[in-house]
Design a protein around this nucleic acid. Structure first.
Length: 380
DNA sequence: TCTGGGGTCCTAGGACCC
DNA sequence: TCTGGGGTCCTAGGACCC
C-alpha cells in the first residue's frame, strides 16, 4: 500500500468518535497503601522497593513527597538516597496491595460492564453505552473517585476521552487526585503544549530521535505534514502523528478483548555470590518449577524456551530454542535450558549476575490435547 | 546512576520453501 | 550457476510499560 493510500484509508475510517473511555490510575499506589496502614508516614518522602539493609535494588513506587526530590520508579535505591538522605524505605506488602487492588476493581466493575484491568493500579472503563455525554461521564467519574476513597482511603486520577490512549494521557496530565476530560474537538488543543513523552510508548530513546528534529511537544509533531512525519520517524512516527492530530487509531471492535498470555517467565538477580554451577542450577531449577506450576494453573502448553543470562559487567544474552510440538513438562524445560547453558560453561559462575527462564509460544490446552501431550511426554 | 522483575511489541537477519 | 521475489518461521536484541 502506498503512503497516499494509507492516509486516505485512515482519514475515512478513523476520524470517528463514538466512544467515551474512562481511565483510572491509583495515585502512587503501593506508597499510598503503606501510608494508609502507617499514618505516621504521611507527608514523608517514602519509597517502596529495594532492600533497606543492603541498599540494593530499585524504587518500585514512591510518594509524591519523594518525587519532589527527583526520585522516580525504576531508580536505583542508592541514587535515591543520594537525592534524599532522610528517605524512608519500606520493602512492601505485596499481598496486601493485591487485596486492595482487587477490592477497588470490584467497585469499578459496578460502573461499567465493559472494563479492562490493566495492572494492579489501573483500569479502563468503556462508558459509551453507560452515559449520554461527557458531562454525565464527568459526574460519574466524580462519584467513582468518592467511592474508591470512601472504601479504601486511596486517591486516584481519572482521564476521560474518546479512546484509551487519550484517556490515559488525560489522567497522567493531572496527578494526584485529578479528573481531566478531553472531548473529541479539544484533542489537538489539549495535547499541543504537552511533552511528547507523555504518549505511552515514547520513552527516552524515542524522545532523542524526536528532539533531534526539533519535536519535543505533541504540538510540534502535529504541525508537521504527515509525509514528513513518516519519512523522519517511520511507521511508529506516523501512528503517533495520527494520535496527536486527533485521529482515533484504535480499532474500536477489539477495544476490550481479553489478551491471551504470551509468555511466562522468572528471572533472579544474584545478590549473593555463587561459586559453582551446581548452586546456580538449584536456582534455575526452582524457577523452572515455579514457571511450570503457573503454566499448569493456566491450563496451557509451551513450545519455546528462552534462557537469559547476565554477567557482572551487565553483558546480557538470551538464547532460545523452539520444540517441534507443544509441551507441558518441566523435564523438557530442564533439558533445553541445560543445553542452552552449555555455551556459557567456560564462564566463571561467580561472574553471573542474573539468570532468567521464559516459556513462550503458549497455547491453551483442551482435555483432548492434554492426554495426547501427556502420552507423548511419557513415551518421549 | 553501579542498574528489579514481570511482561509486550518491534525490528532485522537468516533459513527455508515455492 | 553469481542469482528473483514472496511468505513464514525462528532467533537475538532492544525499547518500553507498570
Amino acid at each position: 500500500m502506498t503512503l497516499a493510500n494509507q492516509i486516505v484509508y485512515f482519514s475515512e475510517r478513523e476520524q470517528t468518535f463514538d466512544s467515551i473511555i474512562l481511565y483510572m490510575d491509583l495515585d502512587a499506589f503501593f506508597a499510598s497503601v503503606e501510608i494508609r496502614e502507617n499514618p505516621e508516614l504521611e507527608g514523608l518522602p517514602l519509597v517502596v522497593g529495594g532492600n533497606p539493609k543492603t541498599k540494593q535494588g530499585v524504587v518500585s513506587t514512591c510518594s509524591y513527597e519523594a518525587r519532589k526530590f527527583g526520585i522516580h520508579s525504576g531508580m536505583p535505591i542508592n541514587q535515591a538516597l543520594k537525592l534524599c538522605p532522610h528517605l524512608t524505605m519500606v520493602r512492601g506488602s505485596f499481598k496486601l496491595y493485591g487485596e486492595v487492588s482487587k477490592s477497588i476493581m470490584k467497585i469499578l466493575e459496578y460502573y461499567s460492564p465493559t472494563m479492562k484491568v490493566a495492572g494492579n493500579d489501573e483500569a479502563y472503563l468503556d462508558l459509551t453505552d453507560v452515559v449520554a455525554d461527557y458531562e454525565e461521564a464527568k459526574r460519574l467519574a466524580t462519584e467513582l473517585k468518592d467511592d474508591v476513597y470512601a472504601s479504601e482511603e486511596i486517591t486516584c486520577s481519572i482521564g476521560i476521552a474518546p479512546n484509551r490512549i487519550l484517556a490515559k494521557i488525560a489522567s497522567d496530565s493531572d496527578k494526584p487526585d485529578g479528573l481531566v476530560v478531553v472531548k473529541p474537538l479539544e484533542i489537538s488543543e489539549f495535547l499541543a503544549p504537552l511533552n511528547i513523552t507523555i504518549i505511552p510508548g515514547v520513552g527516552r530513546k524515542s524522545f532523542e530521535v524526536f528532539s533531534k528534529e526539533n519535536v519535543e511537544l505533541c504540538g510540534d509533531l502535529a504541525k508537521l505534514p504527515h509525509q514528513l512525519a513518516y519519512q523522519k520517524f517511520g511507521k511508529y512516527g506516523l501512528k503517533t502523528w495520527k494520535l496527536v492530530n486527533g485521529y482515533n487509531t484504535e480499532n474500536t471492535g477489539e477495544k476490550f478483548v481479553r489478551h491471551e498470555r504470551k509468555s511466562i517467565s522468572e528471572e533472579r538477580t544474584f545478590f549473593e555470590k555463587y561459586n559453582s554451577w551446581e548452586e546456580i542450577w538449584i536456582r534455575i531449577d526452582s524457577s523452572i518449577d515455579a514457571i511450570v506450576t503457573r503454566l499448569t494453573v493456566k491450563k496451557m502448553s509451551f513450545r519455546t524456551i528462552t534462557l537469559k543470562i547476565r554477567f557482572k559487567n551487565f553483558e546480557t544474552y538470551t538464547r532460545a530454542h523452539s520444540l517441534t510440538s507443544y509441551n507441558t513438562s518441566p523435564k523438557h524445560v530442564r533439558v533445553v535450558v541445560m543445553k542452552l547453558l552449555e555455551e556459557f560453561e567456560g564462564k566463571k559462575p561467580e561472574d553471573i549476575r542474573l539468570i532468567g527462564v521464559k516459556i513462550s509460544n503458549l497455547m491453551k490446552i483442551d482435555d483432548n490435547q492434554k492426554t495426547l501431550t501427556q502420552f507423548f511426554n511419557n513415551i518421549g
